[in-house]
Design a protein around this nucleic acid. Structure first.
Lengths: 352, 352
DNA sequence: ATGAAAGCGCTAACAA
DNA sequence: TTGTTAGCGCTTTCAT
């Protein structure tokens, strides 16, 4: 027995068998006599050996059993979005049965230095998942490619060499916009997710403002597809209630305010609802408000947000499947999950 | 060069140096001639070798570079609590510089089978962090002990063999209760976090209801320390707005309602505020409501919750330090971070 | 059913 | 400054 932690060799010696036999006793991946097995396990118990060292196993197998999940932004912000949290939850749930663990990788681009977290460069992982976007020019994606780590991208552009999972958000947004049109609205404003890494906060001209984020682009395009040209486009720095509130106050504060506001997320929409209440506007009598995601937001109660429901759990599951496929050495096909319009109480006929 | 991915040996051969020299070229942990170094790097580039395989490095070093973080509950629920999210964020931030990654481990106890996630049993990790509690009887803690993995426990009981990080929540709760007392309140109810794994939802008798969760116990004790015996104790199944709302409706719905409600978390308190508004009660004229945590909750605006502010980021940092200490083979001392009463607009004098 | 041997890819003594 | 050597702990052929 070595001076330190016991190893499989120690256990084998104590049990009077070879290491390979001892290995079999633990893995069960091979023929072994019941009696031998028990003897090995007993010896392990004796030496308080708690099972094969994962490091040795990993090296031998060439697999780390780890999926690196690159969070698109500071964790704090990411987690405050129930959207990320639920997808991550679904992902972890679907990865567990595959005996894979999730390694959290901050996706923040530290301005003063390497734009890529060192974990991306050197952590042991078999597959990577890029939550939220990642364009072809993304240095994170480049680093993963360089390392030859198969990657799943969420809500990104289809790119060759990476598996993609997304939702039909463009179509969903079109459907939502049509619903608003049918209510008679013509003065429709929109509150958007960030256009790019600058994360501006204010009105923008969508024709000239640099639009790097695929998800923002698609949801905006969905509105245009319905034949609507928004009377105002307000960019927010993140999908958070407070940013929606700020946007709402800006949009609804003037007399020539829009009669309907379509937000690119439920959290933003909830913020707009709060702003409307603060301004003394009734929803939906004075202004209609719609969101996107289909979250349960207790604090807009008794209102129910009109929104586009996306299958958050399914997304996690789909990613899990893509990961499994990649791990098997195959190329998963791109997945686009369906969304569904849910009409709530926050949209109504245009005021007379 | 082997048929598959190039290894350090391939690069060394291509550069005409020994493997150890090649290793030095990458790690920089030793003397090496600039020219040699460049030659190695060039050879690596040539072979599109993207750096040393972490698996080999880990085995050799005996370190995985991984901290396993056991989330106390289903991830979805955990992430919806900004408290967990912020602590996790601080933790990841403080672990990054130590070149450690965070492995997410679900803490759920699957009723139908092993109460411990397989990752706890067999994932490669150098240190584990148990978020939220963990008593001496916790099977997760037992598994970690068996594996000899040094562990940091958050908000748990001080136990020997594990480092602990917590806050002075009991004292904070006492201070908060005194504030409410000074406003003249005598009919004070409290809304609590879960008492145990059962996660009940309803009024309980604190003297007889089994109380396993240390955090719940301490915050309850803090109220008693101020000499207050709550007129009602309402247990919720999780720290979520909707549960707070349910509790609030139950507590405030009857004529002999309490004049003040102290919740064990801000999310719960926010729910109580919503309930009060729904019932047509003015806060704080008709009922005072206080929470715990010190979160920014945009949707209680324009109100500001009276609460006890805990230093969430610091907590993450403190855990990071404890991890570093454990990694250095030392035993960190238990940390208890201070909290501070923040008087907002949701508490006021008792109604006449 | 069991054992012997090879080697996963790397780093760290130590020697030159 | 560079090279030689020896494993880290394990799994997996291949023999027996």
């Amino acid at each position: 027995m070595s001076s330190n932690r016991p190893t499989l060799a120690d256990v084998a010696a104590a049990a009077g068998v070879s290491v390979s036999t001892a290995s079999l006793a633990f893995s069960g991946a091979g023929p072994i006599a019941q009696a031998t097995r028990e003897r090995v396990l007993a010896a392990a118990q004796e030496l308080s050996y708690s099972g094969p060292n994962p490091l040795g196993r990993q090296l031998r197998r060439g697999r780390a059993g780890i999926v690196g999940v690159v969070i698109g932004d500071a964790l704090r912000r990411a987690f405050r979005e129930p959207v990320s949290a639920q997808v991550l939850d679904g992902l972890v749930g679907s990865l567990g049965p595959l005996d894979l663990g999730v390694l959290l990788i901050p996706g923040t681009s530290d301005p003063s230095g390497n734009p890529v977290d060192p974990l991306i460069e050197s952590a042991a992982m078999d597959v990577a998942v890029l939550m939220w976007g990642g364009t072809d020019a993304d240095p994170k994606l480049a680093a993963l490619r360089r390392r030859g780590i198969p990657t799943v991208v969420l809500e990104g552009l289809p790119m060759d060499g990476v598996a993609s999972v997304g939702i039909a958000d463009r179509r969903g947004m079109t459907e939502l916009t049509r619903h608003v049109l049918e209510l008679g609205h013509t003065r429709i404003a929109t509150v958007t997710l960030p256009f790019n890494a600058e994360r501006g906060d204010g009105l923008v001209d969508p024709d000239t403002h640099p639009l790097d984020w695929e998800i923002t682009r698609r949801r905006l395009a969905g509105i245009l597809d319905a034949g609507v040209r928004p009377v105002a486009v307000y960019e927010t720095p993140a999908s958070l209630v407070e940013h929606g509130r700020t946007a709402g106050l800006a949009l609804l504060g003037s007399p020539d305010r829009p009669t309907a506001v379509i937000a690119q997320s439920d959290l933003l929409a909830a913020g707009v609802v709060l702003a409307a209440r603060e301004l003394g506007l009734r929803v939906p009598q004075d202004v209609s408000i719609a969101g996107f995601d289909g979250l349960e937001l207790p604090w807009v109660a008794p209102d129910v947000l009109t929104t586009v429901v996306q299958p958050l759990e399914d997304k996690g599951v789909a990613i899990g499947q893509a990961v499994a496929t990649l791990l098997a050495g195959e190329v998963p096909h791109a997945v686009e999950l369906p969304v569904a319009l849910r009409v709530g109480t926050t949209t109504g006929p245009v005021p007379a």
